[in-house]
Design a protein around this nucleic acid. Structure first.
Lengths: 295, 295
DNA sequence: GGAGTTTACGTCCTCCGTAAAAATA
DNA sequence: TATTTTTACGGAGGACGTAAACTCC
C-alpha cells in the first residue's frame, strides 16, 4: 500500500470518477485506473463497483475511506510539525557546565531561559569541563558551558563567551605579600596548590612555568576551584585562580610577565543537528558575551 | 514520503543502526542509507545524527518517530479490518421488496436476520418489483426480493426462492360459481380486474389470453394485490391472484388448461461486489427456498 | 457519436544490489 | 584491522503516457 494509491482512492471516492481524479492529480486516466486496481489487488478486495459509468464504493471501500483519510491527515500533520520545529522552541535540552561556571555565570541565564522557553524540558548537570567535552563528543549532552580547551578538536565547535582572567593569589600573611612584585622563579620556589591533572585550567597555569623550565611545588590538587581557594585561604600556599574569586583574606600577587586568562564558552558537536532548544540557549548565551571578545 | 521509508526510519531509530535495519528488512545497508537520506531530503530536515558509528535521533527525528509508528499502525489496522470483512457481517444493507412479499413472506425472515446480525444497518423499503429492478441496476439498492421478471436481464442476477401459484378467484355470488369449470373464452367474457400495467404479475396473467387472441375486459387496475382482492370481494369482477390470498367470501374457479404461477425471488446486480450483509441475507433467504424449486 | 474505463505496449525513472571508498572503533 | 556508513554505477522492475478497444449514455 502506498500513499499515492490512498490519495487516488480518496479522490475517486469523492468524485465518483476516475477521469476527474486524473485531472485533479495531474495524471492520465489509465494511471488512476491502474493505481486503484493495483491497490485492490494488494488489499485482496474490490473497492469500487463499476456500474456502467457510475463509480461507487463497495462495503470494503466504505471501510477503507475514513481510515485512508485519517492516515493521510496524520502524514500531513507530521510534515507541518516538522516544518514548525524551526519556528518553535521545544523539546529536550541536555546541557552541562562546570561547577564554577554553573554557580557563578549560569544562574541568571538559566532563570531567563526557563522563563522564556517553558516548553523546553531542561536537563542540566554539572560535569568537569574535560568530561563535558567527551559527553558532547559522544552525543550524551548537546551543549556544554565550560572552560574551553586549549587545543581545538576537529569534532567540536567551541564558541568563546567570556574571558576569565587568572591571577596569582595568596593569604595576606604569606611572605610574598611584602614584595611589590615577583618573578616566575620566585613564585615557583614557594609551595602551591593546583587544580587536578588533565584539567584545562591546570594546563593554562602550568604552561608558562613549563616554557621557562620551572617545576612547580604542588602540595595538593583538587578538582574544584572553590576548595582550591579554601586551601589558599588557610595558608597552604599560593595558587592561580580566577580574579573574580579574590576576597578576604586573599590578596593578589603581581607577577612579572604573567598575564593568564582562560576562555569560558560553549561546546557543541559539529556532527549534530542543533535542536531548537539548543539554538535558543546559544543565542541567549551570545547576548551575554564579553564585549572585549568581540575585538 | 513513502511507507517503506517510514518503516526503515522506525527500524533505524529502534536499533540505532543502519546495518541491523538492513538485515531485519531483508535489504542491503546502502538501500537503507538511501531511504533515510531521501526521506530527510524530502522532509527538509535531518532525522539522525551520525556521530561516528553511533546513530541517534535528532529533535526532528524524535518528533517524527511516534507519529510514524502511529501511521503504520493505522495502515495495519486497515488491512486487518478489510480482511476481517469476509468473516464478519456488518455494514449497511439496502434491501427492497414488493408490498405483497414484504407483508407476507419477509416478516419472519427480517426478524431472524435482525436478531442474528445486529451489526448490520438495515435499510428496508417497499418498491414495486419493476422499479426495484431498476434500483438494483443503478446500484441504489443492493438486493430486491420481488416477483421475478419473465425476461432475463444481462446485468441482473435473479435467484428463484418461492413458487407462487396464481388462481382465478371471484366472489362466491358470481355467476361463474355455478359452473364446475370454465374455459378461457368464458372467463374472458366476464369483466375482471388487473394489476397495473407494466407489472410482472400482469404480464403473467395476460400471456395465456394473448396467446389465444382473447381480449380481457379489465374494469379497473391497481398497483397492489391487496386492493385488487378487495375489489374482487365487493363483486367488481374476477381476477387472478396468488392462491395464498384466497379467503372468504372468495372462491377459486377451475379454469381449463390454465396453470399460472409467478416466481418470487431475489435480484442483485452482477457488476456489484456483494457486501457481507447482503451475502448473509441471501443465505438466509435460500434456506427458506421452496423445495419444489430444487427439482 | 461522445464520454468514461480498461487493456496493451513502449519509455523513463526509481530503487535495489554490488563494489569501492571513507571514517571510526 | 574490522566494522559501519557513504558514494558510485549498472541492471531490473515499476509507473506513467499514448493509443486502441470496449462499454455505456
Amino acid at each position: 500500500m502506498e500513499f499515492s494509491q490512498l490519495k487516488a482512492f480518496i479522490c475517486v471516492a469523492e468524485n465518483h470518477s476516475f477521469s476527474i481524479t486524473a485531472n485533479q492529480l495531474h495524471l492520465t486516466q489509465p494511471a488512476i485506473s491502474k493505481r486503484i486496481s493495483t491497490l485492490e489487488e494488494q488489499l485482496g478486495c474490490i473497492l469500487f463497483d463499476r456500474i456502467g459509468h457510475h463509480i461507487q464504493l463497495t462495503q470494503a471501500g466504505e471501510v477503507l475511506l475514513p481510515r485512508a483519510i485519517k492516515v493521510l491527515q496524520e502524514v500531513e500533520d507530521c510534515k507541518k510539525q516538522l516544518h514548525r520545529l524551526n519556528d518553535c522552541v521545544s523539546g529536550k535540552l541536555a546541557l552541562a557546565s562546570s561547577h564554577h561556571i554553573g554557580l557563578h555565570r549560569l544562574p541568571e541565564i538559566l532563570k531567563t531561559y526557563a522563563k522564556e522557553y517553558q516548553d523546553v524540558d531542561l536537563d542540566f548537570q554539572f560535569i568537569e569541563s574535560e568530561q563535558a567535552c567527551e559527553a558532547v563528543r559522544t552525543g550524551q549532552i548537546e551543549l556544554a558551558v565550560i572552560t574551553l580547551p586549549l587545543e581545538p578538536d576537529g569534532k567540536l565547535q567551541t564558541i568563546e563567551l567570556w574571558n576569565d582572567p587568572l591571577i596569582c593569589m595568596v593569604n595576606k600573611e604569606h611572605p610574598m605579600c611584602t614584595l611589590s612584585e615577583v618573578c616566575l622563579e620566585q613564585l615557583a620556589s614557594y609551595s602551591m596548590l593546583l587544580p587536578e591533572k588533565e584539567t584545562f585550567t591546570r594546563q593554562i597555569i602550568e604552561r608558562p612555568f613549563f616554557n621557562h623550565q620551572l617545576k612547580l611545588k604542588a602540595r595538593m590538587t583538587t578538582n574544584e576551584l572553590e576548595s582550591l581557594r579554601m586551601m589558599v585561604e588557610i595558608g597552604l600556599g599560593w595558587s592561580i585562580l580566577p580574579k573574580s574569586m579574590l576576597r578576604e583574606p586573599l590578596v593578589e600577587i603581581q607577577v612579572v610577565d604573567l598575564h593568564l586568562d582562560r576562555k569560558l564558552g560553549l561546546v557543541r558537536n559539529k556532527d549534530r543537528i542543533l535542536s531548537s532548544s539548543a539554538e535558543a540557549m546559544i543565542n541567549l548565551l551570545l547576548s551575554t558575551r564579553d564585549v572585549r571578545l568581540g575585538v
